[in-house]
Structure formats: structure tokens, C-alpha cells
Simulated scan of single mutants.
Amino acid sequence: MRVLLALGGNAMTAADGSARPGDQIAAARVAMTAVADLVTRAADPVDVVITHGNGPQVGNLLVKNELAAAVVPPVPLDWCGAQTQATLGFVLMDALDDELARRGADRRSATVVTRTRVDVDDPGLTHPSKPIGRFLDRDAAALLVEHGETWEDRGEKGWRRIVASPEPREILDAAAVRALVDAGFIVIANGGGGVPVIRSEAGLVGVEAVIDKDLGAALLAATVEADVLVIATDVTHAVLRFGTPQAEPIGRVTVSDLRAMAGEGHFASGSMGPKVDAACRFVENGGHYSVISDLAHILDAVAGTAGTVVVPDESQS
């Protein structure tokens, strides 16, 4: 079985959201203990590809950009994505290799800094819509606007940066990921949805954008021919009527039924919505099933017996 495990960016921070280096290392060790369980305790051999969010980490780099903007030009957003892919990959590899060695498992990890192609004419590139980073006052935002960034006045909270969020179309480095998996490596790839690039007359060019990490995970899973996509979050299930007395966890569900629930507005666009969309896309593109659950239930999630399990429409049993 080949599994694509998608970790949220907050899986790499402390419980209170702190993202100091020590917090990230500690969080990585917790997450990689679950991956080691999957590798060493699953009933059948499992190939594992890991992808992850990077929102808190990119946020830290943006703060450095802001503080240094009067001294050095800000690092572009695609560079921030590449830097966090490499840093988080290194931290995750150390944690996973240590845990596997402790268990006597003869497996090693590798990280691929991964590019994701987006369309040059994607409307998301010309109409930035995704807010990122912290709020600043007008003068601080104006300095960054001079460097070519887009900032919007958000009222009492201040100004906030708005960036493009185009649709992921192609994982350019998928062949390298597949080769490493076939060679027995546990591979960490496509962090933060991938570094967004376009094909232009000048060749491949990075763009100032962020790709939804869950949609990037669904595309990577399909591209590396994963059997199962597991989207790890901080809850055991997706939930209908979340936050109300009528809240109801969703167990096994077909793609059509889950799409209908999404159409009724059950899943917030900034949290569970992209996870639901990604889970559906993977199954619609030929995946066996996808699961939304937490790392504490990783073995059962991969087996399709825990969490919200999304199956093809013809799989009713």
C-alpha cells in the first residue's frame, strides 16, 4: 500500500501555536512517532510519502521581511516556500530517522524541495485573494507596497498582505519522489502545496503566490499513485453542523454525499473546506479512499476504519 500523509502546518508548532525552533522540533517528534507506528506496525508493508503545511513558518519569514524592509529587499514568497520546505524536511527527517532507528527499523527518509506548476493565466494570479501574515499599520504596509507587495486596509486591525492562490496543475518533481519511494525511502515532499512556478518564455519562473496545501496534497497523491490519502488534522472526523448542539461526526461517506454536504455550507472555507475538497478530488481521480482524521488514529485511518472515510460513489458498503 502507498499512503500520502498530509500534515497541517500547525502540526509543526506547540499546542499554543508557538513556532520557536524548539517548539517545532518537539512537535515534529510527536508527528513522526505516528509515522513510525505506521511504518513498523501496519499489518501490511506501507510506502509513505509525507507532505506538510508551512503557514506558521512562512509567517515567521514574513515578519523578518517586514522588520528588515528598510535595509534589504524582502525575500519573495516562492523563496519563503522553498526555504521552509527544506527546513521542515530536515527537522522531520531527523525526528523520523531517530524514531525508526530506536525501533530497529531499516528505513530512511529523504526530502525533495518540490515545485508545483500553476497556469500563467490562472485568475488567482491577477486577483490576489488570500490574506497571510500579521496586521501592520499604514506606514509599515506602505513600505512593503513600495517593494511590490499587495496590502489591504482591514479596518481597525490594520493592513494585511493579500497574495495569489492559484490552482495546482502539475507536480514537477514527482518523478524524483516516485524514484525515492520505489527505492524504499520515506519521502517528504511538496510542503506548503509546493513552490509555485509558471512556464514562461524565459523558462520556469517562481511566482509570488501560495498554493493550498490540501489541494497540493491531493495532486501529489494522485501523481505518485498513492492508494490512500490521509489528511491529518486536530479532530477525529469532519463534522456536520460544527459548533452547534446538533453536531454530528461524519464516518464513511461517498464523494457525492460529501460534496452535497459541502454545497450546503457545512465546512468552513478557511479550515475544513479545503480538506474536504482535497479528499474528494483524490477519490474522484482514482484513489481507493481518503481519510480525514488525527494522528492518534493513524493506523486505523490508513486501514479505512477511523475518521471520515471518503469512498467512490459505487462503494456503498
Rank of each mutant, 00 (worst) to 15 (best):
183 A>G: 12
194 G>M: 10
89 G>W: 02
204 L>K: 03
178 R>C: 05
94 D>W: 11
132 I>W: 04
101 A>Q: 03
207 V>N: 07
134 R>D: 14
117 R>W: 10
210 V>N: 04
186 I>T: 14
207 V>W: 09
86 A>E: 10
97 D>W: 02
111 T>S: 07
104 G>Q: 10
86 A>Q: 05
201 E>M: 03
118 V>K: 13
193 G>K: 13
150 T>L: 08
167 E>C: 13
128 P>T: 15
146 E>S: 08
136 L>D: 03
178 R>F: 07
208 E>H: 02
90 F>H: 01
95 A>D: 01
199 R>V: 10
180 L>A: 14
138 R>V: 03
183 A>T: 05
137 D>Y: 03
80 C>F: 02
181 V>M: 02
205 V>T: 02
210 V>W: 00
181 V>K: 07
172 L>W: 10
155 G>M: 09
89 G>N: 12
149 E>R: 15
94 D>K: 15
141 A>Y: 10
214 D>S: 15
133 G>N: 15
109 S>W: 10
76 P>H: 00
162 I>A: 09
204 L>N: 06
106 D>H: 15
123 P>A: 13
109 S>M: 01
79 W>H: 13
177 V>M: 07
113 V>R: 07
85 Q>G: 08
187 V>S: 14
94 D>T: 11
120 V>P: 01
131 P>A: 08
181 V>T: 09
95 A>G: 13
117 R>K: 06
99 E>L: 10
197 V>G: 12
132 I>D: 00
81 G>T: 09
83 Q>W: 02
170 E>S: 14
93 M>A: 02
187 V>F: 14
79 W>R: 03
106 D>Q: 03
158 G>S: 11
153 D>W: 11
175 A>P: 13
135 F>Y: 11
120 V>W: 00
159 W>I: 07
207 V>G: 02
159 W>D: 15
84 T>S: 11
154 R>A: 06
77 L>E: 01
184 G>K: 09
170 E>R: 15
151 W>D: 13
165 S>F: 05
161 R>M: 06
144 L>I: 11
189 A>G: 03
203 G>Q: 04
205 V>W: 00
124 G>F: 05
76 P>S: 05
125 L>E: 04
191 G>Y: 13
160 R>I: 03
129 S>D: 11
168 P>A: 04
158 G>C: 12
163 V>D: 04
86 A>K: 07
197 V>P: 03
191 G>M: 10
105 A>N: 04
157 K>L: 11
97 D>K: 12
101 A>K: 05
172 L>V: 15
215 L>N: 08
143 L>V: 14
190 N>Q: 10
118 V>C: 09
173 D>I: 09
208 E>R: 02
170 E>T: 02
121 D>N: 05
126 T>R: 05
94 D>I: 15
146 E>L: 09
102 R>K: 15
189 A>V: 09
146 E>G: 11
174 A>C: 08
193 G>A: 00
156 E>S: 12
128 P>Y: 12
78 D>R: 00
179 A>H: 12
175 A>G: 07
122 D>V: 13
101 A>M: 15
139 D>M: 00
136 L>F: 09
208 E>T: 01
122 D>R: 08
136 L>V: 03
168 P>I: 01
188 I>E: 06
99 E>R: 04
124 G>W: 09
82 A>H: 12
130 K>N: 02
116 T>D: 10
163 V>Q: 04
160 R>T: 14
91 V>N: 02
145 V>P: 11
106 D>V: 04
210 V>G: 03
172 L>G: 02
185 F>I: 08
120 V>N: 04
170 E>A: 06
